[in-house]
């Protein structure tokens, strides 16, 4: 236990919400979006003034902040490498979701950190940064759909890396989609996520036309899976135009 912080009650219980009307994105989505429509995006760079680069992304209720530090000298242990390393750190704010999260990183956050690393590394020209480490810290301030938040985190981190002046091949963007029966809906919210039968997360470099990461859960016919991948690729290109504008506006 962390004794430096004021401990709350040992066990807390979230009050049960009044039963909401059942969500069925197959017929109508709660926020009146079309199935192939992503949430509206707001992006801003340079929001953390002391970092080498930073970005803030808001997609609907999702709020993600990313700060990039480096390149700085790698620790002596792996300093002999002729390529640099990209370290990513993914964290949900304690108040970001329905249940309070601890300060220590849990297994899911550790996995998402690795996903971030794998999604961004192909874009960063690490061969330009021998013996150095670039660190990206992502904080999810509000979570509205876990895969959608991770997707926003990837786009946000790519934007922050660009803001830090790190040499990159392309600006990575990411998008999530959910399966609802036979329908595929882009960018599902937390309410929709509770009733989905599966989900896809895809991160993509639109200019180079290369996929940098892909996760899929849920049982599905191969053809529908390919359809979801193509839908996500289209959405990633849309996000790319928005993130690119944010960089041009600097």
């Amino acid at each position: 236990m962390d004794r430096k912080r004021i401990a709350g009650p040992e066990k807390s219980v979230v009050p049960l919400p009044a039963p909401a009307p059942p969500v069925n994105p197959q017929t109508a989505r709660p926020d009146k979006r079309r199935r192939d429509q992503i949430r509206s995006l707001y992006t801003k760079t340079g929001s953390v003034t002391q970092a080498n680069g930073s970005a803030y992304v808001e997609a609907g209720n999702i709020k993600v902040l990313c700060a990039v530090y480096g390149p700085r000298q790698s620790s002596s242990k792996n300093s002999s490498s002729n390529t640099g390393t990209l370290q990513c750190d993914f964290k949900y704010a304690p108040f970001s979701g329905g249940k309070r999260r601890g300060y220590a990183k849990d297994d899911q956050e550790k996995e998402f950190s690795l996903v971030l690393e794998q999604a961004l590394t192909p874009a960063v020209r690490l061969e330009q940064y021998p013996k150095s480490t670039i660190q990206a810290f992502v904080l999810v301030l509000e979570n509205d759909g876990s895969l959608a938040s991770l997707a926003a985190a990837i786009s946000c981190a790519a934007l922050a890396l660009a803001n830090a002046g790190i040499e990159m091949n392309d600006l990575v963007t990411a998008c999530a989609a959910g399966y609802f029966g036979s329908a595929v809906c882009l960018d599902p919210t937390l309410d929709e996520e509770a009733v989905q039968s599966g989900a896809v997360l895809l991160s993509y470099m639109p200019v180079l036309n290369e996929v940098t990461h892909l996760i899929q859960t849920g049982e599905i016919a191969p053809a529908q899976c390919v359809q979801a991948v193509e839908l996500c690729i289209g959405a990633c290109s849309q996000i790319h135009t928005v993130t690119q504008e944010a960089l041009l506006a600097e």
Binding site: T212, L214, P222
Partner: peptide, 19 residues
């Protein structure tokens, strides 16, 4: 049926190769 997909490693793939 596909029950999951996971890309790993630090490289990227072209969509046609991926499919």
């Amino acid at each position: 049926n596909v029950c999951g997909l996971q890309k790993s490693g630090k490289g990227s793939l072209e969509p046609s190769i991926l499919i």
